[in-house]
Design a protein around this nucleic acid. Sequence first.
DNA 1: CAGTGTGAAGTTGTTCACAGCA
DNA 2: TGCTGTGAACAACTTCACACTG
Lengths: 220, 220
Amino acid sequence: MEKIEQLERPKSVAVPEPTIRRMPQYLHFVKALHEQGEPFVSSTTIARMLRLDSTQVVKDMSYTGITGRTRVGFSTEELLHAIENFLGYNRKHEAFLVGAGYLGSALIQYNGFRDSGFKIVAAFDTDKKKIGTEIHGVPVFSLEKFRDLASRLHINIGIITTPAGVAQSIADLMVVWGIKAIWNFAPVAISVPENIIVQDTHIYSNLAVIINKLGQSNNR
Amino acid sequence: MEKIEQLERPKSVAVPEPTIRRMPQYLHFVKALHEQGEPFVSSTTIARMLRLDSTQVVKDMSYTGITGRTRVGFSTEELLHAIENFLGYNRKHEAFLVGAGYLGSALIQYNGFRDSGFKIVAAFDTDKKKIGTEIHGVPVFSLEKFRDLASRLHINIGIITTPAGVAQSIADLMVVWGIKAIWNFAPVAISVPENIIVQDTHIYSNLAVIINKLGQSNNR
DNA sequence: CAGTGTGAAGTTGTTCACAGCA
DNA sequence: TGCTGTGAACAACTTCACACTG
């Protein structure tokens, strides 16, 4: 009984999160190849450049639904579209950002998002000096305008680049204001209702890994 | 024979990387508790706040060498020191940053690093307008000064916040100039000799996960 | 033979189950 | 009972082994 239930939806076999995380890298690399006129690329080549295992690359590619030619590899053009489609980059994803400091500004102008379908369309802050200005063409509004603008523009992604102390309260507001996914850069964990997606990005964690490895290599 | 070889070094049981990544979060939370005068904290409390499994927390704590009191939890003070020691935050870690744009500036002033023993002591750029200025008290030098200053100040961590196109060449230079660990924020994978530590921080990847989850929840 | 594609084995990390303690 | 601490079961991800193809 249970089994049959599960078989109802056979196609989406739950893509491993690590695979999803690697996709943008594949996209970046394949796009570069395609732009310089390379018609094909093999998993081995991708693996070498991205320092991955080649069968890993093959497995990851299979999730996009693409099928390669033996001895030749994958068509860069096909692959490009397959990955973009997988990542949802052909659909539009617009976000509001709260906290127009350095980090917020960095995200707004981050070129990694270029041609990804993702765009930060407005920033919000409580600092009167920032309100009314623009960062890289993106306007900075008073936080009070968030709710109204979000519903009018159908925004469902909110980015938090505020100091740690106010991050939770901003998250709470975002939820009330109809945001479905929160991308949090403040160095604290954020609590939200179950149905809201949260992605905490703790820059800090990467530093911890570096320092740890550095310490180990000194001991050797 | 092989087995005996492995048993030679029994004490350092290789800390799982996810554990290392969680440590800074523990530190942040425990520090806050300690500052507001809380003498003890249990793994259950930490787990609830950080949305983790409580046995996970216990396991992680065991790597710091700390031992808790049953029914009471861990002394916040002891825990604080144990984690700081684990992370190497009592030692000093100084870094040079190349690419003094928004992202570089954001890192320099990022308060997540406050009292972590980690400090970006100088920034480097090729843009003449930036050279000679200061970002949050950190001087911006011409890239040519990197080598000399790095050896004089014994810097072994390099941060790359340049555009993707030049990231690899900057990494190559850093290696030649004696850097031991590279923290890369450019949206490309960087290749370095085996003995050099690299941590690629692809902001992008987190976005991919968010968009993917959003897509899934819309289908439901 | 240099590729894709895939099931099986191995590894790593997480969660469970339970002993011990105050 | 509510906590620490730990070995065992489980789940997720990666790597290996090999069949297949032009």
